[in-house]
Design a protein around this nucleic acid. Structure first.
Lengths: 224, 224
DNA sequence: CCGTAAATGTCGTCG
DNA sequence: CGACGACGTTTACGG
């Protein structure tokens, strides 16, 4: 990894065109050739960048002036005109062992499938990821009376999720072996507008308590 | 901006829990206190990070060992345990003038409004960003026969966009001065599932060629 | 400040 | 390799 602090201007020509006027910035060149241009604020997103795989060509322009041209397979180009370099260092980092995550939707889905009676006493799981032509339904199950229920799970329940569940319900209800199928929209948090839309469509809302569900979980299935 | 190359392990506890085993990594501390943890590969996204506003607390553990604790307003924490430091430098960068973009959806919308006959001979623009209670319709126009048409524009046409247009159409069709209103889903690229859904709902799909439209553009309206 | 829509989204997963 | 959905999405924009 190479770190450069430099006064530079940047142009990107690819999926769109973008331009950065001259200023002092951090340039990062990673081992895979990718380049990031960071300012001293904003957030984790660089001002500009080129994703790997790509190649960096460095050309002198006389004096301190340099031009870096970064090109990827698709022909997208990032051109960095360097006026002055204030810092330039290289470092060996090696391969990163990578990130372990816990608490995402897939885990919520696994927990709810295990503990389907969270939604109602006597409920039984049919299957997770029940396939339909427009994609899998998170959970398909039967309530105590034997009626089919489709469950859509989100970490944060917003309008999109209600739309998604609505599409599944429309499709599932065309299947005479399953119909009538009703819907449950389950999330750790449900936005007011999503709840209004769900209720308007006859969909039940269920707020899930991740910590409680995790507490009831079989510990062998935990990540760490 | 401070740049540190260090052997470190990282834990994040916030919206989810995440852990990074010990490895050599780049740590960036920006002027606003935000922290990025980068490996020597991947892409522009850090392995882990804390967005501003946040505060960094640095504590010695004896020897080279250090612990950085980064906390934000919501109580989310990023804990970086540093075993060994290989590089540590600070740099003044100043405020960045920011990025200028060209070729995003707003530009596509402007071009299509200018060249509305791309969608059909004799079509006339009513207006861009036609307001409705649930948000503005990208373009409202009339076809050669004088029938109202609502156009939703995307760079990449996916299911979300069809849903969005469907909501607009439902609303617009309640207005007796406009009804019947039909829909056109216009994008540089339309995904198969989005096309299926659109056609099923009687929405016409139109694939836009940005380069061709740009060639026909009035150059005075360009950003640069 | 909240809600919605866009993004050079990026990233995983599954066909 | 493409399609699809999640994301600590982040970010910009409007009310």
């Amino acid at each position: 990894m190479r770190l450069v602090i430099a006064q530079c201007s940047v142009d990107y020509a690819g999926r769109l065109a973008a331009h950065l006027p001259s200023a002092r910035r951090l340039l990062i060149v990673k081992a895979d050739g990718s380049v990031l241009v960071h300012s001293d604020g904003g957030s984790y997103k660089p001002l500009n960048w080129m994703s790997p795989p790509c190649t960096l060509k460095e050309e002198g322009q006389g004096g301190d002036a340099l031009v870096w041209t970064v090109t990827n397979k698709a022909g997208e180009q990032l051109v960095i005109a360097i006026e002055e370099v204030f810092h330039d260092s290289a470092h060996e980092l090696g391969v990163d062992p990578g990130l372990r995550k816990d608490g995402v939707e897939s885990h919520l889905q696994a927990l709810l499938a295990e503990q389907i009676e969270t939604l109602g006493k006597g409920w039984r799981l049919i299957r997770r990821e029940y396939p339909t032509p427009i994609g899998p339904v998170d959970i398909l199950c039967r309530d105590a009376a034997g009626a089919t229920v489709a469950v859509e799970i989100k970490r944060r329940g917003e309008i999109d999720g209600v739309e998604q569940l609505t599409r599944y319900l429309e499709l599932l209800n065309r299947d005479p072996l399953l119909a009538p199928v009703r819907g449950v929209f389950a999330a750790q948090e449900i936005k007011p507008q999503a709840r209004v839309l769900a209720v308007d469509r006859g969909i039940t809302c269920a707020v899930l308590d991740y910590e409680v569900m995790r507490g009831r979980d079989d510990p062998s299935s935990r990540l760490f």
